[in-house]
């Protein structure tokens, strides 16, 4: 057989195997992003369970600040509205609502000394802080997965395989605008 034909066949086989591998890699990457997003949802929803208990503790201490209760409701609604599909932009409302609630709770703790001295309330605050820590870590891991996935679908040769077969779109990572605004350095790009 002609050597050129054999060479062409070998190249074709290598390209097909490589193509399959990239195709599977894109699907795997997308699934990992989705799994990481699910983790974010799980920990955000666990936060709402703590909010139920928090409301009870606040009621026990006769804390009926309308704005605080509104913030709790606002956070619960924001968490419930999170989509099942990975989308970092959707987290902005939840994270803003969480920050506002934490600020409101700190003010309430100062305004109600009994609440500040209560072990139950302090445990609740610690619980919320722990949940928030897990949410933060889950978002970090989600963003890392998104970065790897986006690199695969946007960089050659993944972009070619994705354009022809997978047709996946880039996933939006979560960016904290408040945090980035307080950071003065702007990259020169």
């Amino acid at each position: 057989m002609d050597i050129a034909l054999i060479l062409a066949a070998v190249i074709a086989v290598v390209m097909i195997i490589g193509g399959f591998s990239i195709y599977n890699g894109i699907i795997g990457g997308h699934n990992r992003v989705q799994r990481a997003w699910s983790d974010v949802l799980v920990y955000e929803r666990q936060k709402t369970k703590v909010l139920d208990q928090l409301q009870k503790v606040l009621a026990d201490f006769m804390v009926y600040e309308a704005s605080l209760l509104e913030k709790i409701t606002g956070l619960r609604s924001a968490v419930n509205a999170l989509p099942a599909g990975a989308n970092g932009n959707a987290l902005t409302t939840v994270e803003t609502a969480t920050r506002e609630l934490m600020g409101g709770l700190r003010i309430a703790f100062e305004a109600y000394p009994d609440l500040k001295a209560s072990e139950a309330a302090n445990n609740m605050m610690r619980e919320i802080a722990e949940q928030q820590e897990n949410v933060g870590a889950a978002i970090t891991i989600y963003n890392r997965n998104v970065e790897l996935f986006n690199n695969t679908v946007e960089m050659f040769p993944g972009s070619v395989v994705n354009g022809l077969f997978n047709k996946k779109t880039r996933v939006t990572p979560f960016t904290d605008t408040e945090a980035s605004q307080s950071f003065s350095y702007t990259p020169n790009i």
Binding site: D39, V135, G136, A137
Partner: peptide, 11 residues
């Protein structure tokens, strides 16, 4: 494993 490996533990 699932109980142990919380996101904060991973980091």
């Amino acid at each position: 494993c699932a109980k142990f490996i919380k996101p904060s533990t991973v980091l």
